[in-house]
């Protein structure tokens, strides 16, 4: 479904990714692990290149999605046409809008009214707390609720592939579990999921496969269960 081949990325003159390759198959839940600054977010940002100054520059390699080269596609079309949803780092929900307005905005490019209504119901059943706060301004929500909204919002784009950037950041262990359980539910219902995480514990518990990044390179890959028992990883990331 998603194939990244030999990707080199620069910020200014500094190369941040030194030729990484990875793939995600339909129906999989894959995680990309690594420490701060390893290049995990850069990898995600290369798939969905947001406007400057945040956009990294791809100097080599390619990103194919369902057989189509994603590199020339502007971010709003990655979402609207290719149906990839992104839950960005720090959630970035619209605090001056209500919960419902945030979700509604995500349906901007969609025309399938009947399916949109089913998707609203789905989001509210996955995250009952959002349902209670439908008409509340989002900047009054807790961090956990905002993370749920950001995930629901990506879902409302009509995505069949969701990318998440550090979803566990700032969440209590309990909320983390809750969020990953929802991701697992979504995944079992057919959603392909790619999670960038620093928290190897939780990501390896729920994902099928995992990649490990260090200093702009992929240094290890394999089944999540295998990585979880790998002594090196246990020492460095599962401590």
């Amino acid at each position: 479904m998603l194939e990244i081949e030999n990707l080199h990325v620069q910020y200014g003159n500094i190369e941040a990714l030194h030729g990484i390759s990875l793939h995600v198959k339909p129906g999989e839940m894959v995680t990309l692990l690594g420490a701060n600054g390893a290049g995990k977010s850069t990898t995600l940002m290369s798939i969905m290149r947001l406007p400057p100054p945040e956009a990294p520059r791809v100097t080599q390699g390619r990103i194919m999605y369902k057989g189509i080269d994603l590199l020339p596609v502007p971010p709003h079309l990655v979402v609207a046409q290719h149906k990839i949803g992104l839950v960005p780092e720090g959630r970035r929900v619209f605090g001056n809008l209500t919960v419902l307005e945030n979700l509604k905005l995500a349906t901007y490019a969609r025309k399938d009214t009947a399916q949109i209504h089913r998707d609203y119901e789905r989001v509210f059943s996955l995250f009952p707390r959002l349902s209670d706060r439908k008409n509340q301004r989002v900047d009054t929500l807790s961090g956990g609720e905002q993370q749920m909204l950001a995930t629901g919002r990506a879902f409302m784009c009509g995505a069949d592939f969701i990318l998440l950037d550090e979803p566990s950041m700032g969440l209590s262990p309990l909320l983390m579990q809750e969020l990953f359980k929802v991701l697992m539910d979504l995944n079992q219902a057919g959603m392909t999921i790619f999670v960038v995480e620093q928290n190897a514990h939780i990501a390896l518990k729920y994902a099928h496969r995992a990649y490990l990044m260090e200093a702009g390179q992929i240094v290890m890959e394999g089944k999540a269960s295998e990585l979880a028992t790998n002594p090196e990883i246990q020492k460095a990331y599962l401590g």
């Binding site: 969905m48 947001l50 709003h76 079309l77 992104l86 619209f94 001056n96 809008l97 905005l105 901007y108």
Partner: peptide, 24 residues
């Protein structure tokens, strides 16, 4: 309207707007 909501959303976080499938 959705375009009106998008106007308000941009004033809050311009970078996140394309993530909704909206061309800025």
């Amino acid at each position: 309207t959705k375009i009106g909501m998008a106007m308000r959303a941009i004033s809050y976080d311009r970078v996140a707007v394309p993530l909704m499938g909206i061309p800025i």
